[in-house]
Design a binder for these strands. Structure first.
Length: 310
DNA sequence: AATCCGGGGGT
DNA sequence: ACCCCAGGATT
């Protein structure tokens, strides 16, 4: 059952109206009064800034992104500025945001924007999707937030809010591009500006109120319309998410140690220095080989490694 | 559809 | 200890 299907129910005057339009209006009003003051919400924030922020926010929490974003935009205020430096500089400046190939991909996207789009971040979702490292979420987020275009934007927060408020389930089903966009389209206001606001508003609600664990339902603007609440907060019955392997002792940890060493120095790192980072030679070699294959590290001489020079 | 890919903070 | 985080690419 979706919000539209429940819309025939007459509700008390002070209750949240449970039409799609009513839900969107309530969430957007709440957002207007409770939105966090984030850099990418400042007036005049550039489309390039939005794109950089969205890359950084791919699996890295807001609070860790903010300081790096400021550094990046001061150093590389346009795509052309980033495109003009070696990719290794982007990887170094990425610091410990995690998943450093995002830095490589962001650099590649900057080059593509410079070469194919005259240095202007494209408006068109398909043009954005064609850029390295930009997928379904980021393409729509840039089009909607940087340029105000009307597109459904679906991130993990949005998926969770819809799963609860509309579908009455504790957690969203595994991501499905078509289903997720369809569900969000049902809620998205027709009017362009209202749509852009709502895209941000529902994400914010999921980020600060309708959180994955310990949701703050008492502070939720649509608690009276929430299907999950109405159903008595049933537990999630769908397929279990795969338990991610523990970080300690993983290849990812070893890759991270090597990358930290490469970032820390401005001269090539020797094989001996890399050896000192991890005792297991097989795993160490596998990690280094992976970094070389990914282009995150390069072999500048026999047994000498560095960040990508260009 | 499943796996891989960092790192840090909340519970 | 375990979970989660404004995901995307690859197989």
């Amino acid at each position: 059952m979706n919000a539209t299907a429940r819309s025939t129910t007459t509700v008390a005057a002070d209750a949240v109206e449970t039409t799609a339009a009513g839900l969107a209006a309530e969430i957007s009003t709440w957002f207007g009064e409770n939105a966090r003051d984030l850099p990418w919400r400042r007036a005049g924030f550039s489309a390039w800034g939005t794109l950089v922020s969205e890359f950084m926010l791919q699996q890295t929490p807001v609070n860790r992104v903010i300081p790096r974003l400021a550094e990046w935009l001061e150093r590389w205020p346009t795509p052309g500025d980033l495109a003009s430096v070696p990719p290794g500089e982007a990887v170094r400046a990425w610091a410990s945001l995690g998943y450093p190939r995002r830095a490589l991909w962001l650099h590649a996207a900057a080059v593509e924007i410079t070469e194919r789009h005259g240095g202007v971040v494209p408006h068109d979702v398909d043009d954005l999707l064609a850029l390295t490292g930009i997928g379904d979420y980021t393409a729509r987020a840039v089009a909607a937030f940087a340029y105000g275009h009307r597109h459904p934007v679906v991130d993990t927060n949005t998926r969770r809010v819809i799963a609860r408020a509309v579908a009455g389930q504790a957690e969203p089903a595994p991501p499905s591009r078509r289903r997720d966009l369809e569900a969000m389209s049902q809620l998205l206001p027709e009017e362009t500006v209202a749509a852009a606001v709502f895209n941000a508003a529902i994400m914010e609600l999921g980020a600060v109120v309708c959180t994955s664990r310990s949701p703050r339902c008492e502070a939720c603007p649509i608690r009276d319309a929430c299907a999950w609440r109405a159903a008595g907060y049933p537990e999630y019955a769908g397929p279990k998410k795969a338990v991610q392997k523990k970080f300690e002792g993983s290849d990812r940890q070893v890759r991270g140690l090597i990358m930290a060493e490469l970032r820390a120095t401005h001269h090539p790192v020797t094989a001996a220095e890399i050896e000192s980072l991890w005792p297991d030679a097989v795993q160490r070699d596998r990690a280094l080989a992976g970094l070389l294959a990914d282009g995150l590290a390069v072999c500048v001489d026999t047994g000498m490694y560095a960040l990508s020079q260009g």
